[in-house]
Design a protein around this nucleic acid. Structure first.
Length: 213
DNA sequence: GTCCGGTGAG
DNA sequence: CTCACGGGAC
């Protein structure tokens, strides 16, 4: 049932079907961090529009965010929804980056995860996304898709921390593997393992506890 | 548990 | 029209 070795089988099947994902699409590490906040509970399509808006105004920079007004930021990121909250979150992020000597310094911290979680508006998933895709350190990102898929495929449930440990203790500690795996999970969640799943053509049909029925 | 919120698919 | 979306704070 809770066989951790099955995790690599899942990974291989997903990779065979969907191929290389190459997340996170961004031109800079700070852009990745901004995207990580903007994508909270919002489809990536909306984030792309907001990122373009920010880019056009040369706002993908900590100092630019810090020196801009909340109102201006809200206009630019409106496509991502929750814009009043997210504009403040971007401000706090920018301030935290600046006050701690920039990203190069920040990403070397031993307590990077703790540091990020102390920025109001950055929770576990956003922090781990930044750690994995921007700082490129091996932290497995758990999201709602991961929870849903693990429950269906392996009948395995748990909170954020438990599921993260499940992946990290059963996989090689490999940033690239974690990056691709999480991206593949998201792709599966969007295309087949949806709320109303499409099981007949799912790449995991042969090994899925739920799909077998 | 509830609220935040514009966008696109169906 | 409804619904989910690469969550987090309270």
């Amino acid at each position: 049932m809770c066989n951790g070795n099955k995790l690599m089988d899942i990974y291989k099947l997903l990779k065979n079907r969907f191929g290389e994902q190459n997340w996170w699409p961004a031109e800079s590490e700070f852009e990745m961090m901004v995207g990580a906040i903007l994508t909270q509970n919002v489809s990536w399509n909306n984030v792309e529009i907001a990122i373009e808006n920010l880019k056009d105004d040369e706002m993908l920079d900590p100092l630019a965010i810090k020196n801009s007004t909340l109102k201006k930021i809200q206009e630019l990121i409106k496509p991502t929804g929750f814009y009043k909250q997210k504009s403040k979150r971007l401000k706090r992020l920018a301030r935290a980056v600046i006050e701690n000597g920039g990203l190069n310094t920040l990403f070397k911290k031993d307590n990077l995860r703790e540091f990020l979680l102390n920025v109001k508006g950055i929770g576990p998933e956003t922090a781990d996304s930044i750690i994995l895709y921007a700082a490129e350190r091996p932290k497995f990102v758990i999201d709602s898709y991961t929870k849903r898929i693990l429950k269906r495929v392996m009948n395995h449930e748990g909170n954020y921390q438990e599921l993260q440990r499940f992946f990290e203790s059963n996989l090689n500690t490999d940033s690239k593997l974690y990056q691709e795996y999480h991206a593949l999970i998201v792709e599966l969640g969007k295309t087949y393992c949806k709320k109303n799943p499409i099981c007949d053509s799912c790449p995991l049909i042969e090994i899925c506890e739920f799909g077998k029925k």
